[in-house]
């Protein structure tokens, strides 16, 4: 993509760069007016986008078909509108029907799909030995199997962690800490990728890197 020459495109490019610097100024100079301005601009724009997309989505999915004669779409629209009665004390009870429907539908849909991939397949993959695999696969197999048992024993609260439960619970805690460490490492990687992306953008804006 060539470096833009039109005024509006250039303005957008530089506004993005200035807001990026403003947001990251928090890291270096804590809460400051520039950061606060960028934060407010960000929240305002994000809210505006959410509002516009939500209206467009409702219009596309429900309002347009309703106006075209598909009367059934009145039901989700009424349930959706019912959500807003939560702001009117006198009619707050109406929102309970909308919320109950939403929770009920989501619960039914998620529960029906969760059983096999999230429970049965996970248990099966944990207890299935890696046939014909490398030494490392066997190490992983025993680590995951043993680590799962120990981690579960750590969350047994109906029995005091003494006797056989004492070493397994302690080991379970260590396994959990290793898992949390991995997650933290991945989080750092993600944040660094975002920072690297913004630095790349800044270098593109000042013309050091091509857009």
């Amino acid at each position: 993509m060539a470096y833009p020459t039109e005024l509006w495109a250039l303005t957008g490019l530089w506004v993005g760069a200035i807001l990026t610097v403003a947001i990251y100024s928090y890291m270096l100079y804590k809460e400051n007016p520039l950061y606060r301005l960028a934060e407010h601009v960000y929240i305002g724009i994000a809210f505006a986008i959410v509002a516009v997309v939500a209206v467009q989505n409702t219009n596309r999915i429900a309002v347009t078909p309703l106006l075209n004669g598909e009367i059934v779409f009145i039901i989700p629209l009424l349930l959706g509108l019912g959500m807003y009665t939560v702001f009117i004390e006198k009619y707050r009870w109406v929102s309970r029907y909308s919320i109950a429907t939403l929770v009920g539908v989501m619960l039914a849909v998620v529960t029906s799909g969760i059983l096999i991939p999230n429970i049965i397949n996970q248990v099966a993959s944990t207890i299935t030995p890696p046939m014909g695999s490398t030494m490392m696969d066997w190490v992983n197999f025993f680590y995951i199997g043993f680590g799962t048992i120990c981690s579960v024993s750590y969350f047994l609260f109906t029995r005091e962690h003494t006797g056989i439960l004492a070493p397994t619970a302690r080991l379970g805690r260590l396994v959990l800490m290793v898992g949390l460490g991995v997650m933290f490492g991945n989080t750092v990687l993600f944040r660094m990728a975002m920072l690297a992306g913004r630095i790349e953008y800044l270098l593109q804006v000042v013309g050091i890197l091509p857009l």
């Binding site: 991945n186 990687l189 993600f190």
Partner: peptide, 10 residues
């Protein structure tokens, strides 16, 4: 995303 790596591994 990298944050999801360990959650997706299972």
């Amino acid at each position: 995303i990298a944050m999801k790596g360990s959650a997706l591994a299972p």
